[in-house]
Design a protein around this nucleic acid. Structure first.
Lengths: 257, 257
DNA sequence: TAGCATTGTGTCATAACGACGCATTCGATG
DNA sequence: CATCGAATGCGTCGTTATGACACAATGCTA
């Protein structure tokens, strides 16, 4: 865990090192036990959980900043990360709550402090392999863990709206991107892939039609192994055919569920 | 034309009235004589043409700022306007060119001037009815006019990239949104609508299949009038059925061309 | 070893799609 | 005013994609 001193330093020096009034928030999706999960952090200064976010260094590309935040929270380097929306309401940031909470924490900031200014935030969403993530709180938070997408009611500030927008975007992109690759382990079964789609789309799909369509994309390789131990007939394992997968990424999948 | 004094004032006072280091740029699409057009402005301080843009007032919603810029440039109030991407490279803004050009214009700014700082810009695209637009230059520009989408090679800073990204987005959205409504006059013919789609997609479509698909959406009303004077058989006029149109907007059109 | 739940594979009717034919209608032409 | 060219309205046909469902195969369990 990063020592709290860093947190105080950031609070003090932020104005000099970050792009002013600009933040980014990451909606990090994972898939585990047939449930879609989101990685959230628990701020020390607020009761609600929040999306992991950060600020942009003065000389840093926006996308690089998002990659950095993700790396810091998950330990993962090379992941699917995509900007999806900017949230720019004039009244979206209410850091005054923060201010009083910071005070409890022993940190005092003036009324003109950079953190209290109005912030625009850029939303990114990421798709990561659940098992590879090492959830790591940042210097401002006391916890960092996965939440089931359906168990999230209220979040810090407008983060719930940001999450919802990310989900909408994900659903739209599902028809254009072969999304499974980033969320599933290297080897997976067709039922697992289907569950992923069903969870994201929030509807049930016909098992046989799903398989037909999925294989028709030609981006899957059926392995010779099966997943034993499932108390029933052992399903085949699949993996993505990276060559065809990348090709499909460019052209779009043209799906309709 | 707004007097240049305002321009000088904005340059001088910008830091106090705008969100820092944040701008927005609008890609305003129109359709005229079977060509897709974009509204561009000619900056006084630069040789290249640019996208109309602006800054965000400290108390102003980001979307409101975009609406305001659009209103100022086109005179149109109620239009289709959508945020599509944030451009946040650290080196994207090179206002130093600006600085020397401003100098020629008799305006001197110091090295720490707010305009010279790094800017993040939010891209919006708008669909407007060509004939309704009254192209109006802003205080920093000497001209404002429509350009054919295919005649644009180089633009100010990274504006060409922004334009290209807007076009990509428009093509993607074409399958989800009944886009014609915003770009065509209230009454239009099927060949006109088809030309619009062909122009945006940059490919030819089969006349009969286009008609079949378009009508199958059920968002068009065929009027009893025809467009005479076209040197050939007079095509029927159509208009959008707003009730069904709005319904379709929510559900998506599920098209594939 | 029988039973059960789940997976693998196939069928069938219907809808959507792409390519194309033909008759109709407008202005232009003489 | 009859004829022609060009564009439009409307329809056909074969192929493919889709949605709903049947049946056999497999692996654990009792």
């Amino acid at each position: 865990m990063i020592p709290q001193k860093t947190f105080i330093e950031v609070i003090a020096d932020g104005e000099g090192i970050f792009q002013p009034s600009l933040s980014l928030d990451c909606v990090i999706f994972g898939f585990h036990e047939n449930e879609l999960k989101v990685l959230l952090i628990k701020l020390r200064t607020n009761d609600n959980w929040a999306l992991p976010g950060g600020f942009v260094f003065k000389e840093e590309d926006l996308d690089d900043a998002a990659t950095r935040v993700l790396k810091e929270r998950t330990g993962i380097n090379d992941i699917f990360l995509q900007q999806f929306h900017v949230f720019g309401s004039a009244n979206r940031s209410d850091w005054n709550i923060h201010r009083s909470n910071l005070k409890k924490d022993g940190i005092e900031i003036g009324p003109n402090h950079w953190l209290l200014k109005r912030f625009i935030t850029v939303g990114y969403y990421a798709l990561v392999e659940f098992a590879h993530v090492i959830a790591t709180p940042d210097s401002s938070s006391e916890d960092c863990k996965w939440w089931d997408i359906n168990e999230i009611d209220e979040l810090f500030m407008d983060h719930k709206q940001i999450l919802d927008k990310a989900l909408d975007t994900l659903r739209l992109q599902l028809n254009h991107l072969p999304i499974g690759y980033n969320l599933l382990p290297q080897k997976f079964t067709m039922p697992e892939l289907q569950k992923l789609y069903e969870t994201i789309l929030n509807k049930t799909l016909d098992r046989r039609n799903f398989q037909r369509k999925m294989t028709s994309f030609g981006i899957l390789k059926r392995l010779k192994e099966t997943r034993k131990g499932g108390a029933h007939r052992a399903p085949f394992l699949y993996s993505f055919d990276m060559r065809k997968y990348r090709k499909a990424l460019k052209q779009g999948l043209h799906g309709g569920w």
